[in-house]
Amino acid sequence: MARYRGPKSKIARKFGEPIFGPDKVLEKKNYPPGFHGLASRRRKKSEYGLQLKEKQKAKYTYGVLEKQFARLFSKASASKGITGEVLLQLLEARLDNVVFRLGLARSRAAARQLVSHKHITVNGEIVNIPSYQLRAGDVVGVREKSKSLEIIADSMTSHRYNKYAWLEWDDAAMSGKFLNRPEREEIPENIKEQLIVELYSK
């Protein structure tokens, strides 16, 4: 499946946030890329422009393509609860995101690769679909043959698992349990989901 493989610092500068993780370029140049970068920051954006920017930010943050994002929004709209919050919960429940949250990969892109290459299991069974939606009680682990992988060991050393209320980590088993979908206040991403809802409501 197609993925964005261009310069990540440019995208981070566009949104003014380290959406792909710590970025030295963003620290030095905290303004949009391009010749008119500083000028464009001063220019007032239209309501549509702000809504579109927020959707793009969410897509790049979670590594989701346009069609996938639209499908998730439709699912969120048809679900009970506040559409914007449900959308973020669905994004957080993706297998690649949970692998990243558990500290098994340094980034969501690296987590996607681990899942695609069959290094990750769900309830003991290999799952190689990054967009797989986890349910409450699902256990995400590392395949036995993959536990000695350097990329996983490095990530667990440098990108230690941050405790999230909706995840439970078992160090000995190298696995984590997805307890439930997180509440909005528990999701650390700086995304104004209401703007996304307004965009799709037009």
Rank of each mutant, 00 (worst) to 15 (best):
E27S: 15
V127C: 04
G16A: 12
I129W: 01
G137S: 08
R101Q: 03
H36I: 12
K80C: 02
L50T: 04
G49F: 05
A105Q: 00
L26H: 09
R43S: 09
A70L: 10
V99H: 01
K53W: 01
F20H: 06
S131Q: 01
I19Q: 02
E47R: 15
T121F: 10
I82C: 02
A70H: 13
Q56V: 08
S46H: 10
R43E: 08
E92T: 09
F100Y: 14
S116I: 11
V139A: 06
V64M: 12
Q56P: 04
I19R: 04
P22C: 14
R143G: 03
K24Y: 12
R94N: 02
V122M: 10
G137C: 05
S40L: 12
L91Y: 01
Q68D: 14
G141Y: 07
D138M: 01
N128G: 03
G37Y: 00
K44L: 10
N123D: 14
I129Y: 04
A78K: 15
L38F: 11
Q113N: 11
A110P: 00
G49V: 09
P32E: 07
G103L: 03
V98S: 00
K44D: 03
L95I: 07
G16P: 05
R106E: 13
D96R: 03
P32N: 04
K57C: 11
L114W: 02
F35H: 13
R112D: 00
K29R: 11
E144I: 08
Y31D: 06
G21H: 01
G103A: 11
L134I: 00
S46V: 08
L91V: 10
L87I: 01
L88F: 03
H36R: 15
A76Q: 05
G81L: 09
F69P: 03
Y62S: 00
L134G: 00
V127M: 07
P18Q: 04
E85Y: 13
L114H: 13
V25T: 12
Q68L: 14
V64Y: 09
R71T: 15
D23S: 08
L102Q: 05
R112S: 04
G103V: 12
Q68K: 10
Y48Q: 10
Q51D: 11
R135H: 09
R106D: 12
G84T: 04
V64N: 07
G103N: 09
V98A: 01
E54C: 09
L87V: 10
R143L: 01
K147H: 07
A93R: 00
H119T: 01
L72V: 13
H117R: 09
P22A: 13
L102H: 05
S79I: 15
E47P: 02
K57L: 11
K44H: 14
G21A: 15
S77D: 05
L72R: 14
L91C: 07
Q68W: 14
R135V: 06
V142N: 05
V64G: 06
N30R: 15
K118Y: 09
